[in-house]
Design a protein around this nucleic acid. Structure first.
Length: 424
RNA sequence: GGAGAGAUGCCAGAGAGGUCGAUUGGGGCGGUCUCGAAAACCGUUGUCCGGGUAACUGGACCGGGGGUUCGAAUCCCUCUCUCUCCGCCA
């Protein structure tokens, strides 16, 4: 959520920069500023009235104390009208505030000046890449065939137990999951992240804090009886640790990470290119989250990008890093890097991580602030997060890229974690 | 799940219709003393929304929401959470 101060102070600059996201904010901002003006007028009038009422009450109080009953009763007489007026003012103020809030919430985050304009993924900027595209042997097949051949991931069994998109990992398939999670967490710890094991269902306030609610409730599984939401990403609980918190500047940046299963309904997004592990309702992910000083949040972003890149290098996966153009960025992000690994048998790039700086957009909703040493004033923090990493597509490309006639070779860095070198 | 108790500022804890943003203690910060530190003493210490260049100033906030009243931290209703006992249980 953008701050009202920014909209007040530089409305035209906001409109200009939101064009990069192909968003025309002209009308919304005009409406917001109008509501803001009205709201402030109403508040001034309401506050003055309240001050008058407070004074009258105090007078009545002292009259009562002095035993001047009649005078006190007389003073009560005029109050009725004032209270009627106050009721009107309060209602008008609440209405204007609520409407303003609803309008502001519709505005996406402002992209960083470094974000390129563009309409779709076609316009994204490839920053760099690494790892050679492997030459597969003639009998190579996509991962959805490999998992059957080696009986390591079972979609049909998942359908029986739960439904489509809930795979069952078996034997070496299950152990590979566990190995990847431990590998990612250990690497994260080396990079200075504190490990968190959060709840995987959250309340409404948390959903609102990171921006899943009120808009995207259709994308989350909802536990109706207790009004809780199953998390689509560990970003939600881990970032919400800092909801309604005032930090010290010296505490920043804060680096947390956590492994959780993630649940996504993916309503309406099934179709071509989502076979096998490419898109699931439940998957495992290690998420890294930083709370940063506004002046240094892009250092944090670079640091996170290097960390993710390092993971991909260690697993010898062919990858590329892409800076998303305005049109392909999420509503809440100011700058996003996507990491893609090449899936040799599918012959396409698969997104395995999205690492973003949200600047103060989430922090404003979260009320996550910090204070400079000695300062009285608080300032919104910047929040960042990234997948490091999401498992399914990593598994897909590991299986496809490393397949040989003898079986699937496990990358060296993972062998200490799997305890085996080959899936055969 | 049943019964009871409770929710106040960074923490502990007063406060039970009138001047309470809230006694007091601890902690933190600043100062005096000291070569320095401790102790002691003095001072200070929340958040949010308006107005004002500023000094300053109006309003709100005592778990959330609603009500009674001229006036509520204090009374009533409701929700949430915590604790104790009982039951159940990984």
């Amino acid at each position: 959520m953008l701050t009202i101060n920014l909209l007040r102070e530089q409305p035209s600059a906001v409109i200009e920069r939101l064009k990069i996201k192909n968003f025309d904010a002209t009308e919304i901002i005009a409406h917001v500023l109008d509501l803001d003006r009205r709201r402030r007028e109403l508040q001034s009038e309401g506050d003055a009235l309240q001050a008058e009422l407070n004074n009258l009450s105090k007078e009545i109080g002292s009259l009562m104390k002095e035993g001047k009953k009649e005078q006190a009763e007389a003073a009560k007489k005029g109050i009725g009208n004032l209270k009627e007026r106050q009721k009107q003012l309060t209602e008008a103020f609440d209405a204007a505030s609520a409407e303003m809030q609803n309008e502001i919430i519709r505005l996406p985050n402002i992209p960083h000046p470094g974000v390129a304009p563009g309409k779709s993924a076609e316009d994204n900027v490839v920053v760099r890449g690494g790892g050679g595209i492997p030459e597969l042997y003639p009998g190579a097949v996509p991962h959805w065939d490999l998992i059957k051949k080696y009986d390591i991931i079972d979609f049909d069994l998942g359908i029986k137990i739960t439904g489509a998109g809930f795979p069952v990992y078996k034997g070496k398939g299950a152990k590979l999951q566990r190995a990847l999670i431990n590998f990612f967490l250990d690497e994260g710890e080396k990079a200075g992240y504190r490990e968190i094991e959060p709840p995987i269902v959250v309340n409404e306030d948390s959903g609102f804090g990171t921006g899943q609610l009120p808009d995207k409730e259709g994308q989350m599984y909802h536990v109706g009886i207790d009004n809780l939401y199953m998390i689509p990403t560990a970003e939600v609980p881990i970032t919400n640790i800092y909801r309604d918190v005032i930090l010290e500047a010296a505490d920043l940046p804060i680096r947390n990470m956590g492994y959780t299963p993630c649940f996504r309904r993916e309503a309406g997004s099934w179709g071509a290119h989502v076979r096998g592990l490419n898109r699931l309702h439940q998957f495992d992910k290690v998420e890294i989250v930083q709370i940063a000083h506004p002046e240094r949040s892009y250092d944090s972003l670079e640091e996170m990008v290097s960390h993710v890149e390092n993971l991909l290098k260690k697993m010898d996966l062919p990858y590329r890093i892409v800076r998303l153009c305005g049109g392909d960025m999420s509503f809440t992000s100011a700058m996003t890097y996507d990491f893609e690994v090449y899936s040799a048998a599918q012959q396409r790039w698969l997104e395995v991580s999205s690492t973003s700086n949200f600047e103060s957009f989430q922090a404003n909703r979260l009320k996550c602030r910090f204070r400079e040493k000695g300062a009285k004033q608080t300032t919104l923090c910047h929040t960042l997060n990234g997948s490091a990493l999401a498992l399914p597509r990593i598994v897909a490309s590991l299986l496809e890229n490393n397949q040989t006639p003898e079986g699937i070779k496990i990358p060296k860095a993972l062998i200490p974690y799997t305890g085996f070198e080959l899936i055969s």
